[in-house]
Amino acid sequence: MEGVKLTGALSAAEAASVFPPNERAERGPVAVIECVQQIPCNPCEKACPFGAIEVGPDITNLPRLDLDKCQGCGLCLSKCPGLAIFLVDASKSATEALVMFPYEYLPLPAADEIVDGVDRTGRFVTKARVVKVDTGAQREGTAIVTLAVPKQYMHDVRSMRLVAPGEVFLCRCCEVSETEVRQAVREGAKTVVAVKMRTRAGMGLCQGRTCRRLISRVIAEETGQSPADILPPTSRAPVRTLSLEALAGGDDNE
């Protein structure tokens, strides 16, 4: 069995049960209350100045969100002791959604920094850009971070991890960091081959099978192109590694 009681994180089914419909997120910011345990707790109810959250007289009830009353102000995020409330907003761009969540770790990210967007269990989902880090007084010591993520991940990204510069290897075979790849793109490398020429990314054991897509994505991010438009590298034999002996074949001549 999978679910919050066993893993400490919501299962996919539990999470899906509390998603606002996509149309609602397309209209503007809205809370996502991922509170699925019936525990005696109701600060969220009072936190909402618009009366959009209702727990009711039995305080072990799950909170219910009125999608029309919710204005997406985000005040409830800081009041939930379980850090179970998030905000999503798909209205700002055609491709990106904003995801807002409480973040209790230090150091805090900076605006415009690229971080790893992670899911409820801390697994990497996507690279994300930090839009805002709110540490204001009403945040009561818990910073609220807003990330921009590709829209398809707005239901998956629920926290983040800082990317130490130089430490994320896009190309693990050759230990080429994302920072190096970005640098290469800024110096003019606009294709996977060009990045490879500058950084060696893609020349290692996997021959680009793992890193090719990641590199295309970085180029796409840096240049504003779509990943589909980024030229793929040329592939040449052998596609799987072979020993020299195997390549040489049996006899020394025809």
């Binding site: 290692g204 021959q207 052998p238 590694t241 002996e245």
Partner: peptide, 18 residues
Amino acid sequence: AQHARRILPALAKVNIIR
């Protein structure tokens, strides 16, 4: 590959990746 094996037999087991 054949020529390399002739001059440097120790490379026979080495993997060619590209």
